[in-house]
């Protein structure tokens, strides 16, 4: 498509017809040693993690840490308010009536874990990011509908503006375009 000679190239965008074609191409890119590239689809294609050679997400640890902090905070809050700040004998129960403290501890742990999960996911994905060179492509609007893409950044060491687009076509891309920064 249109390539503005004045603008530096951000990378190349290739369109594929089906998840199978996308998967196949991803395996090739992974094996060829590309690092700064991505696949795009309207839904997560099963197994593409493997095809792209991605390492497992570290999100579970973030969530676990968040959850533990939340639960500890909840228990600590209840312990402090009930034994130190405002101790009252209620219903004949001891000040540190731990069975009664379990519900709030649990709930705060869950809240902290859920927040850590969503915010962590957004952080790892570097979202929100409303502007991105890839949105310059009009065909890319189909990524949320029924089209599949691979994008390779020009910054990737293996990227060759003259050869890579052709190679992508050989891998099964139906359309290839260079994108400006």
């Amino acid at each position: 498509m249109a390539e503005h000679a004045a603008d530096p190239t951000w990378g190349v965008l290739a369109e594929f017809a089906s998840p199978t074609a996308l998967y196949r191409a991803c395996e090739q890119l992974r094996d060829a040693g590309f690092t700064r590239w991505d696949a795009h689809s309207p839904f997560p294609v099963h197994g593409l993690d493997r095809a792209m050679g991605l390492r497992p997400s570290r999100l579970p640890w973030v969530v676990f840490g968040g959850g533990m902090l939340g639960a500890a905070g909840g228990l600590g809050l209840q312990w402090w308010t009930s034994t130190i700040a405002y101790p009252q004998v209620i219903a004949g129960k001891p000040h540190f009536s731990w069975p009664a403290f379990v519900p709030v501890t649990f709930e705060l742990g869950v809240l902290a874990a859920a927040l850590a999960c969503v915010l962590g996911m957004l952080h790892f994905n570097r979202l929100p990011r409303l502007h991105h060179p890839i949105f310059r492509s009009t065909r890319f609007e189909g990524v949320s509908d029924d089209r599949f893409f691979i994008s390779i950044e020009a910054a990737d060491p293996r990227f060759d503006p003259s050869a890579t687009p052709g190679w992508l076509t050989q891998l099964g891309a139906t359309q290839v375009e260079l994108l400006a920064e």
Partner: peptide, 17 residues
């Protein structure tokens, strides 16, 4: 939509989340 662009690197974290 926070700039969602269907990136599989994003989908990976998203699916985990």
């Amino acid at each position: 939509a926070l700039g969602w662009r269907g990136s599989h690197r994003h989908w990976q974290h998203y699916e985990r989340a």
